[in-house]
Design a binder for these strands. Structure first.
Lengths: 138, 138
DNA sequence: TTCTCTGCAAACCCTTTGCAAAAAA
DNA sequence: TTTTTTGCAAAGGGTTTGCAGAGAA
């Protein structure tokens, strides 16, 4: 028995479809965070017909597999962006969405220290910064 | 003319009602973040009849006036908490939910520095830590 | 063929809103 | 009385889901 064919609890194969490629490509054409609806609109505009539900399902998939970052706007909307390989956080303009990836070795260190101090193991953390970028501040 | 009576663009007077007191009290009885629905459920359970819409409206008001903190869960739900005097973050056990409030002067400083470096103003940030607490680690 | 994926439309869920009745000033 | 609030129920808006048909393996 091979694990890919008969392993119990094997994850179903993921098939590379036109739609999934389209969503991935759309994501690749942006530098900042976009909502599922934004991406669907872009695809429609490009005459790449992909159902909205499929866009949502694909983004969810990509997000779970770690290929895209997902975060929430102030009003609860999910926004996505292809992510780079290294662990980092985001500095997002709350007005125009312009995003800067930032790294924080100090924060990572602080995180581990705090966790250890309180006896917590297997630590993860979320950290996002919001502000108004120079252009939007006027 | 007095500013409170005839000032143009004067904000409407806010009236202290039974409902608003009830929501504030409910908030005061929690140490952690709760959703509007949680609070409404608590009030109902206590036989304090307050409409769900009123709970939402009141939380919004409190949030705007800075008396409560509002943030979003991973799945987009708004959660509220009376804000304590000091700014802090949470270290949450992903297994049992045990929460420790932690302060991070270093993080706050880092946040401001990063924002300044990239020209972002009016900075806010979210930071939450997740881990497994000693009890749950076994 | 078999199993996954898609599209559509309906369902969901949290949240907001319109409006007439109730309460505060 | 005038003005703000409330409650209800309906509407909104993003997101998810059921299911039958389409497509990949």
């Amino acid at each position: 028995m091979t694990s890919t064919e008969h392993g119990h609890a094997a994850a179903p194969a993921v098939r590379p479809t036109r739609q999934r490629r389209a969503v991935a490509d759309a994501l690749a054409s942006f530098d900042d965070f976009r909502s599922a609806q934004d991406i669907h609109a872009l695809l429609t505009e490009r005459d790449e017909k992909v159902g909205l539900a499929t866009v949502y399902r694909t983004l969810q998939l990509l997000s779970e597999s770690g290929e895209v970052d997902m975060l929430r706007t102030e009003d609860g909307e999910a926004i996505y962006r292809r992510c780079s390989a290294t662990h980092h956080h985001h500095l997002v303009c709350r007005s125009c969405g312009a995003t800067v990836e930032v790294e924080g070795p100090a924060v990572e260190r602080w995180t581990r220290a705090i966790a250890a101090e309180h006896g917590y193991a297997d630590i993860a953390h979320t950290l996002e910064l919001f502000g108004t970028c120079r252009a939007c501040a006027g």
